[in-house]
């Protein structure tokens, strides 16, 4: 097999053309650092958005005259809705208790009341994919038609804001990541293209000796993958140091920083992504070989 020859040729080229290869590795690493930090940011934003989604709920206020059986039936109807992930019934008494706990020292203002003015309610948790203004409004209109429901608090605007915030950041992040990924491929493409032209005479000779396309391409693909892999390795190390510095230094001042997570899977993923981008760039650079 000629794989040993291909590996030796790739390493020889990496050493012979060390400056152009080093420049390429550093450029790839710089782009990958931005991609990793952007990915880290989006990953943590998604976690945050999930928490916001978990906290979002609709409150349905019920008619006080409903019997226990009617309430049970109503809860079952609400739970059966596709958009609803869970329901929680809050009786008048529980509502008053929760309100007093919330008001703490101010709770004495209810002491003089003979009657509980609060109404029983049901808190609905909505599935993440349904949290947007239109779905919430549709759901609200549907529920309004059910007998025994007096009023609905749906906060459509909050739902839309959560969604908009998450969508905008994700889209922006993805655009930046795609642009930089294309940039990485282009940088590796340009470098390998230069190296290919420098070895053009040699390639023409080995073609005449009977070399196949894969024999000619293999050293360039290996070289591209090594450039991408090394760029990925450097970017992972720098990004992790950056993450460590941020959480260690700023964690005590801004506690939320400590909740940021650097997933360890990213280390392997970005090494593989680096190598893959290298192979893609090199493959395009070598292009179609003619005999």
């Amino acid at each position: 097999m000629y794989i040993t020859y291909s590996i030796k040729t790739a390493f020889k080229s990496l050493i012979d053309e060390k400056w152009i290869n080093l420049l390429c590795v550093l450029t790839v690493a710089s782009s990958l650092i931005i991609i990793i930090l952007m990915g880290l940011f989006l990953f943590n934003i998604e976690r945050l958005a999930d928490k916001l989604h978990e906290r979002y709920g609709m409150v349905v206020f019920l008619d006080e005259r409903l019997t226990e059986n009617e309430i049970r039936s109503l809860l079952s109807t609400l739970q059966s809705r596709e958009e609803v992930s869970s329901v929680r019934y809050i009786s008048k008494e529980s509502a008053m208790k929760e309100l007093k706990e919330h008001l703490k020292e101010m709770s004495y203002i209810f002491d003089g009341l003979d009657v509980n003015p609060l109404t029983p309610a049901v808190e609905l948790n909505i599935k993440k994919k349904y949290i947007n203004a239109k779905n919430i409004k549709d759901l609200s209109n549907d529920l309004q038609k059910i007998n025994g429901i007096d009023e609905i608090y749906s906060a459509e605007k909050i739902a839309e804001s959560i969604n908009y915030f998450y969508r905008s950041l994700t889209n922006l992040g993805l655009i930046i990541m795609i642009t930089l990924t294309s940039g990485v491929i282009f940088v590796i493409y340009s470098t390998v293209k230069i190296l290919f032209y420098r070895r053009k005479e040699e390639i023409e000779i080995i073609k005449l000796l009977g070399a196949t396309k894969s024999f000619i391409r293999m050293p360039f693909l290996i070289e591209g993958s090594i450039i991408g892999f090394t760029g990925g390795l450097i970017s992972i190390i720098v990004s992790f140091l950056f993450y460590f510095a941020i959480t260690y230094r700023l964690g005590s001042v801004f506690p939320f920083v400590e909740t940021l997570i650097f997933p360890t899977e990213a280390i392997f993923v970005f090494l593989i992504i680096g190598a893959l981008l290298g192979i893609i760039g090199a493959f395009i650079a070598v292009g179609r070989l003619r005999f």
């Binding site: 073609k207 005449l208 000796l209 009977g210 396309k213 024999f215 003619r290 005999f291």
Partner: peptide, 16 residues
């Protein structure tokens, strides 16, 4: 065919 050329050339030794 173009894809056959490398194998074809393997039957030939050339002194340029």
């Amino acid at each position: 065919r173009t894809s056959e050329i490398p194998n074809y050339r393997k039957n030939i030794g050339i002194v340029f």
